[in-house]
């Protein structure tokens, strides 16, 4: 069985966010995720891609198909070189936003994923990894 190699996509415009959603859906289908799990990872990807665009000033996402002893899934890594997040626990609180959104993007994406990791340095950008397993 062949696994699709990782793919890095730009996130510079809101058209890119649409394309990211489509590519994440393809990966999720390939990994054998059910419809609800597909919907969850695509929605999480949409939130994080928009964060990358709105707060990180644009960046990239790397999509990987993962396989742990036959258990398959999708991993997404969002990276930007933006201002970074000064207080990550605060940023993960429902309803907290520095923009004009609902403040659900980061916390919601975490809830919709099986794995979630965030790294950020002031002035050094932000990196968010999520994964969803079958």
């Amino acid at each position: 069985m062949s696994t699709t190699p990782p793919d890095t996509l730009p996130i510079r415009t809101s058209d890119d966010v649409v394309f990211v959603r489509q590519q994440v859906r393809l990966r999720a289908v390939q990994a054998g995720l059910g419809l609800v799990d597909q919907t969850k990872i695509v929605t999480a990807a949409s939130e994080l891609a928009r964060n990358t665009l709105d707060y990180g000033g644009g960046g990239t996402v790397t999509l990987s198909s993962i396989d742990d002893n036959g258990r398959r899934g999708v991993r997404l890594v969002f990276e930007d070189q933006g201002p970074g997040i000064p207080d990550i626990p605060l940023a993960l609180q429902d309803g907290y936003t520095t923009g004009n959104g609902l403040g659900l993007g980061l916390s919601g994406a975490k809830r919709l994923s099986n794995e979630f990791r965030i790294e950020s340095a002031l002035g050094g950008g932000t990196r968010v990894m999520i994964a969803r397993w079958k």
Partner: peptide, 14 residues
Amino acid sequence: MRPAVAITLVELGL
């Protein structure tokens, strides 16, 4: 609204 969308929406926190 599709069922999978409804489930995801609630988990998202909307």
